[in-house]
Nucleic acid binder design. Structure first.
Lengths: 144, 144
DNA sequence: TTGGCTGCAAATATTTTGCACTGGC
DNA sequence: GCCAGTGCAAAATATTTGCAGCCAA
């Protein structure tokens, strides 16, 4: 796992490589996404960025997220009822533990998962490019 | 895996047990959900039911789906951009193969997955009740 | 300088909800 | 007959888009 600030640097580098402009808003949004380990939603990013950069709009947050997604620098966890959550610290498929009570999302340490995608590719005709493995339950804090 | 019509009977039985009324609309919706193996969306169910029962509303489709979900008789696959998809033939967690091109969703035969949930429960403080394992890729048809 | 980016508002899409009427039991 | 269920329309939610003005390169 890379250091949070390395992740941020890498994101900015990807912007440069793709000839995307490096604006203060994008810097701030990407920094939040790269540093936070809590898998924030678009709204959480918006709330945070408002503190340092009050003029920022929701549209910019979403557009920046979409761009980072395109560049493969963040992972999107889709939900329909709740809003989507984003993982900028580990932008590759990995399992998540989602507390259905407090909505917390954490990364478990779990081996023997990466071979799953290969297994599927081998056993089916599908060309598997991505996967999603989420566990739902109650976190230790909420069990108290 | 149960026979499709057995699944339908079981759903109706669950309605009875819960003192829910058995209406023609519910029968039709549940039949579609239990029989179809294509993981239909609410809209697909709506379109199908319109043929036999033209007066049915979208609200009823959603309300019936919500009820069946509550009763544990269907599995909901949440998406944020596309609409949710439902699996009435196997209402327990199991892997899915999702074609990102034609949106087809199929069930792969894949062993060595069920122990994952137990593994997580054992290794973390989480009380895991549910999980979701989806593979994204291009299906054989779309590769042609 | 200039075209990509921002910010506002309006649009879109999906699902939910309120409420009067209807029909299953 | 009673009350849960239905159907219509409106509301709620999350995200996307159009466009005028702005600023990074």
């Amino acid at each position: 796992m890379a250091h949070p600030l390395d992740r941020f640097e890498q994101m900015v580098e990807k912007l440069r490589q793709g000839n995307h402009r490096i604006t203060p808003q994008r810097m701030a949004i990407l920094k939040i996404l790269s540093i936070s380990d809590g898998h924030p939603s678009a709204e959480m990013v918006y709330d945070q960025i408002k503190q340092d950069f009050p003029s920022t709009s929701f549209a910019t947050v979403y557009k920046t997220i979409a761009l980072a997604k395109e560049l493969g620098e963040i992972l999107e966890l889709e939900f329909s009822q709740d809003s989507n959550r984003y993982d900028g610290s580990k932008p590759y498929p990995h399992p998540h533990l989602i507390c259905t009570h407090c909505k917390k999302i954490i990364d478990p340490t779990l081996e023997s998962v990466n071979h799953l995608q290969d297994e599927i590719t081998r056993e089916t005709g599908f060309k598997v490019t991505n996967h999603r493995l989420d566990f739902y339950g109650i976190c230790p804090d909420c069990q108290k």
